[in-house]
Design a binder for these strands. Structure first.
Length: 697
RNA sequence: GCCACCGUAGCUCAGUGGUAGAGCGCAUCCUUGGUAAGGAUGAGGUCACGGGUUCAAAUCCCGUCGGCGGCUCCA
């Protein structure tokens, strides 16, 4: 005799087992019409799920008129759409073996095996979508049925799909004593799939969908296992939502740093130079230089010492640090003395022999540095230290090289050579906590100045099952605790993640998503008890005895390459004035005003403002458009009227209209101040106080 | 590294076996125009690279390099 409590607190009692559908129908026919599922005591279920006991029930609805759909409804629709897609694909390609097809935050996919036959091609999307549309129009019910584990396995073995058998075995191992199928239509007659559910009641509830892309994946995510074809798609309650989403994706593409990087000439990657090796073109170099200046100023305030170190170091250095033995496969191969190499060659030394000799330390080579820490450590070790000197903070924009997997490289966010805004802090055990907090402060200042508020904080801890970590377990405990406490000091939410630690210690990472929703690790702060041990670093304590310092590695930007890649997307290429490669462009109305335009240009340049003048043989409309296209923050239109009064007519990027004329000197000073203050004294307010300008759309 | 797709002018892209195309950009000229594209003319290509099939390859096949989307990895 279940009593049902609804979200508004009202209750309904039944004298028989009920279902969400019956509850919805009891409330109103309209509710039942748009119901697609339910949450029963918090668990997402089918509309026909039996309710035998008292429960809290929330009906999940999909209404076509709604602006925002219930995420639960979208999940049901997307998971169901994955089934419809799988059915359509199997109609066209009967040999396709289904593996796994879940809903995602932004859509769904189905992993499918085409073993031995041609894999699916996106050219087949049209015909698949046609089949899907037909299945949806037939408005067939999703019918759930259940078999005992034993019976179910018998059925699966008879059908012979190793993937589904595996899925079932996993379900049984996880404690399930029954297996469930969802047929699209009549059980045993229509298409069906082993599936835990839940699903929408009928295929017709899938209001709008689109297949997006084809990719590949590994079975169980294991690179040595079968290669599967993954088909991605999206589904919504209504066509309008789909259209809106697709438009959003289009817009995201225009913000992509790879697209903007070309358009705004920020960086270049050249086939002849090498994959993943970034060339900073003049515009991008300006952005990078400005950011480096910014961070250098902050470092001075925090009593860091600037150092410079070379790009290579002896192999033995990296044997000591552990990098060479532990991460050999992600380093560029060592550089070896040419004479030694030819001697070895004449002795018939093979590549394998060479590798072994290097591993054993029998021959010496040089390594392109994969990290800056060993060099900084040797700087620390170059002179004795008293506890009074600590903490020692050594900072360098240090370029490192890593042999990233070729399939991973792309744009500015994953490269093989990159410059970290690196620093290593050597401190006492007692200083760790406050130094960590100081590092996090720096990260916060940077993110705040740049207006980046949408980041995640992750505390990476060791994975107790793995043996890739170095150092004693008590040290790890201490270090992990210090990280938790430091993260606590940030007033932003953070998560702990076991297995995300560096091999030498735990860390605090800052993670930002790119326009396509892919997460990137930017800033990082890492505690390290291990390297001081390996390099036998010491300081003399107040007791006159030698003690071991603790190291902190930190890079608030992470790497200049990745950070600026994400930053380009953050600003959609429209950098604030202080970062913009070209800050002001002077547009002459006609040739008659070229001279005055040049006067204005000289005034700007005298203040160090990065500016150009456009005296080309075009009308002012075209000049404005060109300047706006390049996302230049300020365009100054100057003609005879302005020259007469020593004025400039101002156009600010992102604002709909021209702002009218202002005295040249006023403008130049205001922009110079905005730049010097890194945006905290906006020139707009200085030049046009009290005006409320509407944003361009 | 693995799987799929892609590589044509500086950029964005058309071109399905028979003389290499468009728009933007660039250059020159006309135009001297007051707030998001004025007009004309012209230059510009080893169709990524190497091999193969063919009377004939940008086009079909193989390999390499590079890009893209995933997967795996990411000190």
């Amino acid at each position: 005799m279940p009593t049902i409590t609804l979200p508004d607190g009202t209750t309904r009692s039944f004298d028989h087992d009920t279902t969400p559908l019956e509850i919805a129908t009891g409330i109103s026919e309209g509710l039942a019409q748009c119901a697609v599922g339910a949450r029963i005591d918090g668990e997402l279920c089918d509309l026909t799920a039996p309710i035998t006991e008292d429960a809290n029930v929330k009906i999940v609805t999909a209404r076509k008129g709604e602006k925002e759909s219930d995420p639960d409804a979208l999940e049901l629709i997307r998971h169901s759409c994955a089934h419809v897609m799988a059915e359509a694909i199997q109609r066209i390609r009967p040999e396709a073996k289904l593996v796994y097809g879940p809903a995602l935050e932004n859509g769904f996919y189905y992993d499918i095996s085409f073993e031995g036959t041609a894999p699916l091609s996106s050219e087949e999307f049209d015909s698949i979508e046609k089949e899907m549309t037909a299945i949806i129009q037939e408005n067939r019910p999703f019918s759930r049925y259940e078999l005992s584990a034993e019976e179910g396995m018998k059925k699966l073995l008879a059908e012979g799909s190793k993937y589904k058998i595996d899925n079932a075995n996993r379900a049984i191992e996880a404690g399930s004593d029954a297996l469930t199928w969802y047929a699209t239509g009549e059980p045993t007659e229509d298409w069906e799939d082993l599936c835990r559910g839940p699903h929408v009641p009928t295929t017709g509830k899938i209001g709008a969908f689109k297949l997006q892309s084809i990719a590949s994946s590994y079975w169980h995510g294991d690179a040595d296992s079968d290669n599967l074809t993954r088909v991605y798609g999206v589904a919504f309650v209504h066509k309008k939502q789909l259209k809106k989403y697709l438009k959003l994706l289009e817009e995201a593409k225009l913000r992509d740093h790879r697209v903007l990087g070309k358009k705004l000439k920020l960086f270049h990657i050249d086939e002849q130079v090498g994959q993943g090796l970034l060339l900073w073109t003049p515009n991008g170099a300006v952005v990078r230089q400005e950011l480096q200046n910014f961070i250098s100023e902050e470092l001075k305030k925090q009593q860091y010492s600037q150092v410079f170190t070379p790009h290579i170091g002896k192999l033995d250095l990296y044997r000591t640090s552990g990098h060479y033995p532990y991460y050999q496969e992600s380093q560029y191969p060592p550089l070896i003395d040419p004479d030694q190499l030819s001697t070895l060659a004449s002795e018939g030394c093979t590549c394998g022999d060479l590798s072994n000799l290097m591993k054993e330390g029998d021959i010496e080579g040089y390594l392109l540095k994969p990290m800056n820490c060993p060099h900084h450590i040797r700087i620390y070790a170059s002179s004795p230290h008293s506890y009074r000197d600590l903490p020692v903070r050594l900072a360098e924009f240090g370029t490192v090289y890593r042999w990233e997997q070729s399939g991973e490289i792309g744009g500015m966010t994953r490269v093989r050579g990159f410059t970290q805004d690196d620093a290593h802090l050597f401190c006492t055990e007692e200083q760790v906590a406050s130094e960590l907090i100081g590092c996090l402060e720096l990260v916060k200042i940077i993110f705040k100045t740049l207006g980046m508020h949408d980041y995640k904080v992750r505390v990476g801890l060791r994975d107790s099952d793995s043996d890739k970590y170095v150092g004693a377990s008590e040290q790890w405990d201490k270090a992990e605790d210090a990280c938790r406490k430091a993260a606590e000091s940030l007033d932003v939410p953070w998560i702990e993640e076991p297995g995300e630690a560096a091999f030498y210690g735990p860390k605090i990472d800052f993670i930002v998503n790119d326009v396509l929703g892919r997460p990137w690790q930017l800033g990082t702060v890492q505690v390290d008890y291990n390297l001081p041990e390996r390099f036998d670093l010491t300081y003399i304590g107040s007791d006159g005895k030698e003690h071991r310092p603790v190291m902190i590695h930190r890079a608030p930007f992470g790497s200049m390459e990745r950070f600026i890649g994400v930053l380009i997307e953050h600003f959609a290429g429209a950098f604030p004035t202080w970062l913009a490669p070209e800050q002001v462009r002077v547009l002459a109305i006609s040739e008659k005003s070229n001279e005055y335009a040049n006067t204005v240009l000289q005034a700007l340049r005298a203040k160090g403002i990065r500016s150009t003048v456009d005296t080309c043989d075009e009308r002012i409309q075209a000049k404005i458009r060109n300047g706006a296209d390049l996302k230049i923050p300020w365009l100054l239109i100057v003609g005879p009227r302005d020259a007469e009064k020593n004025n400039v007519s101002v156009r600010k990027r992102g604002l709909l209209q021209d702002l009218g004329a202002v005295e040249m000197e006023t403008f130049v000073n205001a922009v110079a101040e905005e730049i010097a203050s890194r945006g905290s004294c906006p020139a707009l307010e200085t030049c046009f106080p009290g005006n409320d300008f509407s944003e361009d759309t």
